[in-house]
Design a protein around this nucleic acid. Structure first.
Lengths: 209, 209
DNA sequence: GTTTTACTTGAATGATCAACCAAGAAGGAG
DNA sequence: CTCCTTCTTGGTTGATCATTCAAGTAAAAC
């Protein structure tokens, strides 16, 4: 029903791109309508306001998180730690593809959108939570190599913070170096934190306490 | 000369606050003029445009970095590592003071300002570099406890990325928890990375390699 | 004491903004 | 065929945007 509207989909698709490139306030309705090839009247048939569109876009980001961000990364490796860093490598790709200018669309919106706009921030937080959840899955698979009762959510949140911070710095430095440095340090963190992988059949490196 | 203009100072002071609270595009000239109690004609006597004001504000942020961010934190402790975390504690304060809504003014501008605006991004990067430099100073003081030839700039950049990412997450979660988690993990990172402090006169814990 | 420079005043400008609306096209339901 | 719902068209609205300008004040410079 609401699904098969080509116009509505085109609007969301255009907004997804433009909000990422120029931000929410930086994207004017006329920019958006021109990009989507839609008249303003049609827009207001599907959305009650620009803010309603933002919510729809954030919902769409959430739907796209697994198929477009997590799954491709997970396909690159079966090893949990490598999967985490494959997600980060995906962001590195995007930094390079856009001349270090753009990064995570959520990070941008998280800082731009008025905190009074609770529905939008709730959706942004849900997106972040989805991301954290994916990383957490990887961490659960290596729980045995982590200190006992280690807070997996805290570590996954940390990974997200490092990624977002790295993306931000790379944007103003116009260089992928800060992102790479942040990721390299995160590698180091995992190296220090994890006991060596348990070899099947061997208990040689029993692990520190 | 250019210094003693009360009007100019008031404009920069207001802009510093408003850009932090509402962002650059989100701050209208009329907002700004009303907040500073200045007429538009006076504004354009001192600044050729809103963008020129942004540059002046970014220069002012840079001037304020040491006296307002770094020095107060350094006064809280003489221990290098504690000094780094005192800087982070300062950001935590600000998160709490603003109901988790606002954080680092630079982070916000870094993601908002059009990448084509090179002068602005150059100034933002200089601000970040100043911040990294302050952290680097602390790291130099504990160089002996770090692995040999460790890249201090990379580690300092990492600290900044963790801070910015933590601030961002706390904003959308409306909770200081993500920031605290990020900082706690960073603590863990330092704990794992550093050999125990050299006790004067004692070489007991010689340190791992 | 007159000229000059530095700054202020606030209305006006035209562009652009999000949003609205009356009119109509398209197509399925009855 | 007629009705009704769904969607499109594109011109229009009034608010707000950054910026400009001519006129004026005040104090330093000469």
């Amino acid at each position: 029903m609401a699904k098969s509207s080509g116009t509505r989909d085109r609007l969301i698709h255009s907004a997804r791109f433009l909000f990422w490139e120029r931000g929410f306030a930086g994207t004017s309705m006329s920019d958006l309508l021109a990009h989507a090839g839609v008249n303003s009247g049609s827009f207001y048939h599907f959305f009650e306001s620009k803010e309603a569109l933002l919510r729809a876009v954030l919902e769409q980001y959430l739907e796209a998180l697994r198929p477009q961000v997590v799954d491709p990364a997970f396909q690159k490796s079966n090893q949990p730690v490598e999967r985490i860093f494959a997600i980060l490598a995906g962001y590195r790709e995007r930094i390079l593809q856009t001349d270090c200018q753009y990064g995570c669309p959520l990070g941008r919106l998280a800082l731009e959108i008025d905190p009074e706009n609770r529905p939008a921030h709730k959706l942004i937080a849900e997106n972040f939570q989805g991301w954290i959840g994916a990383v957490r899955e990887c961490l659960e698979a290596i729980r045995a190599r982590l200190p006992k009762n280690y807070d997996l959510d805290a570590l996954a949140t940390y990974v997200l913070a490092v990624m977002e911070g790295g993306v931000m710095l790379s944007r103003s430095y116009s260089s992928v170096v800060p992102f790479d440095r942040a990721v390299a340090q995160l590698r180091e963190h995992f190296r220090l934190l994890l006991t060596p992988p348990a070899r099947p059949r061997s208990r040689v490196h029993a692990g520190r306490v």
